[in-house]
Simulated assay, not measured.
Amino acid sequence: MFTKKSLVGLDIGSREIKAVEMVESAGQMQLSALATMPAVDRVDLPQALKEFFSKSGIRTKNVAISLSGQSVVVRYISMPRMTEEELRSSLKYEAEKHIPFELDEVALDCARLERVGVSEPGEENEEMQVLLVAARKEVLDELLGVIRVAGLVPVAVDVDGFALGSAFELSASSRGDGRELDGVTALIDVGGSKTSINIIEDGLSAFSREIYLAGKDFTEAISRRMGVSSEEGDRIKCESTSEDFEVMECVSPLLGDLSAEIHASIDYFENHHERGVDSVRISGGSVSLPGLGDSFEQAFGREVSEWNPLEGIEEVVGSAGVRIPTGNSSSLAVAVGLASRVLDY
């Protein structure tokens, strides 16, 4: 009999908290529970999480969480090919050259990126690509403290953009479409306080960036233009459709700015990697905003499509806690990606 493991991907967003529980057995993953709740003040978060988990049908206390923002630095670097032990021993030396923080202030991690186009064994001066990540310990320790006070057990810490990539990989494999990971795909997640970009090249992250222009900025634009409160502006934004031309006029300048920033990132990748982006896939709580998809398509000059991170993932039989949202399921991408870390422990 196979042993089952379970893990909750816990995405603590600025507007909403999402929890997705995955169960793994013999390499197969299934959705066991899913729940969302409005975001709360940081001081109220531990108690809110306790109540959230007790009411949601989630069974495990093991969680994977993520960091984002200016407290996290990501670098893609080239290094001489070496063993994993050698890589770990040289980590601090490399970090000193690439990380703009004092090393005693950050937690460091790295991962080898084996990608097509990197030197093969036997070539002279062979190199390997390495993903280097640094997170400020102060921010990390605060988040871990909140999780533990809530009675939960943090077993993995990721970065939002990488969780986005993990969800895309899981979705492709669950649908039996491994070819979707071939080529270059730009994943764009438009959330409440930021927009995350992760460009996937042949199944591996090749570029990532955060842009601090997202849902709350659209809400502020609507509130200011229409002369209503932030709460009313948020309601109008969430309930708007493609026929709401007044809303589109409110957010059009910001959509232009966001599209230009994302386009600049795509151009940077294409110029430095000498490969074009084949497809653009969007997700996040703000992708249903009127005019967003059209603005992206006009700016990028290519088709843009929304994707569902739950597509192809089976539910556990009798999982009463699963409540598939009828609205924007693409907002669950980060939480799904975090939950997929159940395969790692």
Rank of each mutant, 00 (worst) to 15 (best):
T3D: 12
K4T: 13
S6K: 06
I17L: 09
M37K: 05
P38Q: 07
D44T: 05
S54R: 11
S54Q: 13
S56G: 07
T60F: 12
T60K: 11
L67T: 04
Q70T: 09
T83E: 05
K97I: 00
P100H: 10
R112K: 11
V116I: 14
G117F: 05
L131T: 10
I147R: 03
R148L: 03
V149Y: 04
G151P: 08
V157Y: 10
D160F: 00
S166G: 03
R175A: 08
G178T: 13
D182V: 00
D182A: 14
G183H: 02
A186Y: 08
N198S: 10
S205Q: 05
K216M: 05
E220T: 13
G227T: 08
E231P: 01
R235D: 04
R235N: 08
E239I: 00
D257S: 12
S265P: 05
Y268P: 08
E270Y: 02
H273R: 15
G276V: 03
V277K: 13
R281W: 14
F296M: 12
E297N: 08
F300L: 15
V304E: 15
V304I: 15
P309V: 00
P309E: 05
V316A: 00
V317P: 07
A320T: 09
T326D: 09
G337S: 08
L338T: 10
R341C: 06
V342Y: 02
L343A: 14
